[in-house]
Every structure is written in C-alpha cells, then in structure tokens.
Simulated assay, not measured.
Amino acid sequence: MAESTGSTKARRVKGSTAAPEPTVGKTQESEAAEAAISEGEGRKKTKRSFDIAIFSGWCKGCGICAAFCPRECIAMGEDGNPVVQDADRCTGCGFCEIHCPDFAISVRARKTASSDQD
C-alpha cells in the first residue's frame, strides 16, 4: 500500500513542475485583438435600406405579409389590402416575400447614389 501512495505523489509532482506556456503567444494574440478592434472603430457601419413592392394585381389580401413582418413595415389598409406603412424600418429579412402565397411581394435592397458624383 505504501508503494501506491508514493507513485501518486510522484505523478502530482510531475504535474506541478510542468513548464508554463510561453507568454509570447498570448502577447501576439492580444496585439492582434487590439488591432482588430481599432480597425473596426475606423469603419462606419452603414444602414442598408430596402424597398418593398406589393403587386396589387396578384394580391388576394390574405394578410400573411402583415402578420409575419417583424418590424411592422406592412399593415392592412382599410380596403383589406396590404400597404407599405414604413419601408425605412425594413431590415430585408424577406419573411413577407417568402410567406406570400401569391408571390405578390418583392423586397429588394435600395440602390444608393455613389458619393463621388459632383
């Protein structure tokens, strides 16, 4: 029984005398993380805008598009047909387009004018 406890102690000693990991790798990782953060701060995040088109000739007024819109961009009008209430709130998720049984809705990214035109 004395031998088994001695071998256990020997294993513990070996585990505690293991060489520490070099700190050079950690420094390089932290420098890379700091560079990525500073690079991200320099970029401006632009909000993408989307246009919602409802083809009234194809629409039967089921209301699925208004029900599925998470940003409430589409609402049901007084006549029972969907209307674009606030297209600027649209995130382009496409739920309305995907769930429309009549393929009467189209969501497309707005084309922006280039800033280098004078």
Rank of each mutant, 00 (worst) to 15 (best):
C100N: 08
K60M: 11
A67L: 14
A109C: 09
R12S: 10
T27K: 13
K14P: 00
A32H: 03
I98V: 12
K44I: 10
V83G: 05
E31S: 06
G6H: 07
R71I: 06
R110E: 10
G92E: 00
K44Y: 06
C62T: 09
K44C: 08
P82G: 09
M76Q: 03
G57W: 05
F55C: 06
G15A: 12
D118L: 08
T46H: 11
A66Y: 09
S49R: 10
G42E: 05
G40T: 11
S4A: 08
A53Q: 03
E29Q: 13
T112Q: 01
I74C: 08
E34M: 12
C69N: 04
D116I: 04
A36N: 12
P20H: 03
F55Q: 09
D88F: 10
R12Q: 09
A2C: 02
T112C: 04
P22I: 11
G94V: 02
S4Y: 06
D86I: 04
P82Q: 10
V13Y: 03
A104V: 03
R43N: 06
A75L: 09
T23S: 15
S4V: 04
I98R: 01
K60T: 12
R108V: 15
T17R: 04
P20C: 13
T27F: 15
F103R: 01
P20D: 14
M1F: 03
I37H: 06
S114I: 03
C62F: 12
G77F: 05
E31D: 11
T91D: 05
C90E: 10
S49T: 10
G42F: 01
T23Y: 00
I74Q: 05
M76L: 12
G94D: 07
S106E: 15
R48H: 10
A109R: 00
I64K: 07
R110C: 13
F50D: 15
W58C: 01
I52W: 00
G25T: 14
I105W: 08
R48I: 01
D79R: 13
I37K: 10
K14W: 00
Q28M: 15
K26I: 07
D116T: 02
D79P: 04
T27A: 14
F55W: 05
P82L: 14
D102C: 09
E39D: 13
V107T: 01
P22R: 08
A113M: 07
A35H: 04
D88W: 02
K26M: 12
F50M: 07
T27M: 13
D88K: 00
T5F: 05
P70E: 11
D88S: 15
Q85H: 03
A36R: 11
K44Q: 07
I74N: 07
Q85K: 06
P70Y: 15
G6Q: 05
S106C: 13
C62W: 02
K14E: 14
G25D: 15
A10K: 02
T5Q: 01
P20Q: 12
D118S: 07
K45E: 13
A104I: 01
F55L: 08
S114T: 01
I64M: 12
P20M: 12
R43Q: 04
Q85C: 06
A18Y: 00
A35N: 02
N81L: 14
I52M: 10
M76F: 06
A18L: 03
S106T: 15
E72V: 01
E3D: 12
I74L: 12
